[in-house]
Design a protein around this nucleic acid. Structure first.
Lengths: 318, 318
DNA sequence: CTGTTAGCGCGTTCAT
DNA sequence: ATGAACGCGCTAACAG
């Protein structure tokens, strides 16, 4: 069996030069209707598929999309959001002949970002977990081949999602609502916090905030903190399902009834949120879509949307 | 600032030809101690890093690792096992300049596998969800750059894991143990089934098997089936945490007390298993390790282990 | 609009 | 053991 046909064979069959065939097939550069048709036919006849590696070497672009996740936790790469997003990117870039690689970045990621910018195998970078400063000081080498997930980049409309949940809590009679937020170094954590304080002020309700880090363990301890500092709390909102599940554990252990005594809301709608007991009320958003869009944006496609909807899902905890 | 140094510059600085420099740096081919030292020094001085894309084009090997998941479900790519494994591979192959791409394969995957074998951008393939037949009829083009996860490849020692859980059920007095197994078309589903029937026979206990598919939804319906067909069942073992969580839901709705009336065991130890109510007893195994090992094996490294431990984690449901 | 000529950066014969 | 030359497959710059 003959090996895969190469561009030169297509060109010969079409009766044109390799350059013309390349121009037609890659869609960049002029070509007459005649040669276009001839090349396309020849390519189809031969079952030609361009060699992504050769193409990208010639073009000087890399062959992989780097998903960089900045976080303090060293186990962040097993976070459900990260695994879902990385997987979605790997599926989304497959048709382009690209692959995805994954790397954790420490909080001071500047040096590592420089190294990434110099890595010629990296076609583009998607960054999650940034703070504002990092986005302002991106290596110039990353211009045009970079996208961020979170505040300032492609983001979940957390204002809408968290806002809807908080309003629901208020509507159903909750008046002492605590928030377990995100880590302070994370840009994407500011919007939910802002939404919360805004709504509480507007409603004349007390502000009760404890920082979190998207883990279940922290959810457990944060819930303890809330109960200790504000024993009359009647609702705990969080910015992460994992955190909310930790909260549920603590409340169960403490004998606090959910939602009777305290209502709880999560954020993300992880696959198992519906399996929690009581089933977790949360907000759902298209993580896979966002990840795929971020990948496309980093690779140069004009992003269709920058803000993705977050819709409340009311189950049993609120 | 000058762009990344290339091989030719290293060679010039070392006073040798590019060919020699290549031989030294890639480690294949002869080289005198003198030139070796000179080349290594020059490379270090210049901070030389080989261009993975150029290297792989010249060598004819691809630039990405394809993780192919064969399954009937079209949403299999959001299965927790898949997302965890894909993510682990993307992190593991990062240092090699490779990326990971992900693709679902239908049950009759032969044609697609041929296409994959012909894709010159694919360095190697990791396959999950195979049946025995598929492994026997692999495209020859995949020889030496292929690894399978599951029976016949790198696998979880499910015999040990499931066996330990079943023995625990027996030890704690359960005598009418049902199993919700895996789908029939999956090679990796046979071992647990075999373990189950063997142990039940040995103990003189009845065989009660319902097929599953690793989803929570199926866990719910399968549990109903079990309760209807064998109302005196006092334990339900599963081969997937997602399924076990579905079982827990059905039992809760039906008013069956866990573990008092019916014990339940899962398999995989997903992050959420500990948060279930009651907390799920299951078996844990190093998914990330397995995935990374499979990636290395596919890329040609001799795998250190083929069977990975599965250790029971007894929480509240059994 | 098209073909020719040079690369992209590295691996690998083949002489020497 | 070493270097010159060529090849991997495609794209970009340049004439025409």
């Amino acid at each position: 069996m003959s090996s895969s046909p190469v561009l030169a064979e297509v060109a010969r069959l079409a009766g044109v030069s390799a350059a013309t065939a390349s121009r037609v097939l890659s869609g960049r550069g002029p070509a007459s209707a005649d040669s276009r048709a001839a090349v396309l036919r020849a390519a189809a006849d031969l079952g030609y598929v361009p060699h992504p590696v050769a193409s990208r070497l010639a073009r000087g672009t890399g062959t992989r999309l780097l998903f960089a996740v900045r976080d303090r936790r060293t186990d962040i790469l097993s976070d459900p959001f990260v695994t879902r997003a990385a997987t979605a990117m790997a599926a989304a870039t497959d048709p382009d002949g690209l692959g995805v690689c994954l790397r954790r970045l420490p909080l001071d990621a500047a040096a590592e970002l420089d190294r990434i910018a110099a890595d010629r195998s990296v076609a583009a970078v998607v960054l999650a977990g940034h703070d504002g400063d990092l986005l302002d000081h991106l290596p110039t080498g990353l211009r045009g081949r970079f996208a961020a997930i979170g505040a300032g980049g492609l983001d979940v409309d957390s204002t809408a999602g968290i806002g809807a949940l908080l309003r629901h809590l208020h509507t159903t009679g909750r008046r002492r609502i605590a928030l377990i937020g995100g880590p302070p170094w994370l840009a994407a954590a500011r919007a939910p916090l802002h939404t919360y304080t805004g709504l509480m002020r507007e409603a004349g309700l007390p502000i009760r905030v404890v920082p979190g880090d998207f883990t279940t363990a922290r959810g457990r301890t944060a819930a303890r903190t809330v109960l200790r500092r504000w024993p009359d709390t009647d609702a705990i909102a969080t910015v992460s399902d994992a955190t909310a599940l930790g909260v549920l554990q603590t409340l169960a252990e403490t004998g606090v009834r959910v939602p009777h005594d305290v209502a709880v809301t999560g954020f993300d709608d992880v696959p198992f949120a519906a399996c929690a007991v009581p089933a977790l009320s949360t907000a759902t958003h298209p993580v896979e879509l966002i990840a795929a869009a971020a990948a496309q944006a980093a690779l140069g496609a004009a992003p269709r949307d920058r803000l993705f909807p977050s819709r409340p899902v009311l189950r049993a905890t609120a």
